[in-house]
Design a binder for these strands. Structure first.
Lengths: 123, 123
DNA sequence: TATACCAGTATACTTTAGTATAGTGATATA
DNA sequence: TATATCACTATACTAAAGTATACTGGTATA
């Protein structure tokens, strides 16, 4: 990150916003209540709509449908309509979606330290 | 991340939730509209309430106050009441708060690739 | 023919996040 | 004495995110 020590004497709000934009993108992509559960479920194996609905407990079909659509639009999830009868629809992570794993893992590592720290503070 | 290829044969929703918890923590910590702008402003230099209010354009004192409090509770921000008159209050990132920089930078790198990709898709 | 499963959609509602606007008490400055 | 600044807080509101519940059309199975 750009810091004062990096000898950036002063920063403008515009510079700051530009800096934040790509971070915002990622947070918007994996933020919200159901995105991570979906991405992680799909990182284990490709799954059909109903399978996801059953495995991600608490999700409604409305949310599952909406989030899968958003993830597909953003190129993270691939939707494959198989010509079985009745049709089944298989969802999977794209290579791009899989590449998010590294980011999630980095976040997770920090988060685990945070959990420890918070625990040690509260007792 | 734990994947099917890592030969985790099957996963339970409980395992999955446990896996996600620390990630959720971080997203809750830096998510929302104003957390990143605040953290990044403070990464440039320690600042007082009014300075932050002026530099983070669009923020209301209510949100600034609330978010600073939350960040303080979570150990990311330090609040220092200086005995000037009238009192000024200086906010700074704790060492722990600064350690988030690496995480944010990792997110940002992925996000920049994402921006490029999205741009190349839309034309 | 009746029932059930699949992959969703529709409508209405609640809850959470964020905004708008005004005001507080303490101190300093003209 | 009047006005301004600092560091907020209070109250009321709007917008966004998520939930509850019911339903659709197509196909398969008993």
């Amino acid at each position: 990150m750009k810091t004062a020590e990096n000898n950036v004497a002063n920063y403008t709000p515009t510079e700051c916003k530009t800096f934040i934009l790509p971070v915002r993108d990622v947070l918007d992509l994996i933020g919200g209540k159901w995105r991570l559960p979906i991405i992680i479920a799909l990182s284990f194996e490709n799954q059909r709509f109903k399978e996801l609905e059953r495995k991600i407990e608490g999700i409604t079909p409305r949310m599952l449908s909406k989030e899968l659509k958003d993830l597909e639009i953003n190129g993270l999830v691939y939707r494959d309509v198989l010509n079985t009868s009745p049709v089944s629809v298989e969802y999977s992570l794209t290579e791009y979606g899989k590449s998010l794993d590294k980011v999630i893992e980095t976040i997770r590592e920090w988060g685990m330290i945070h959990r420890k720290k918070i625990k040690s503070l509260s007792y």
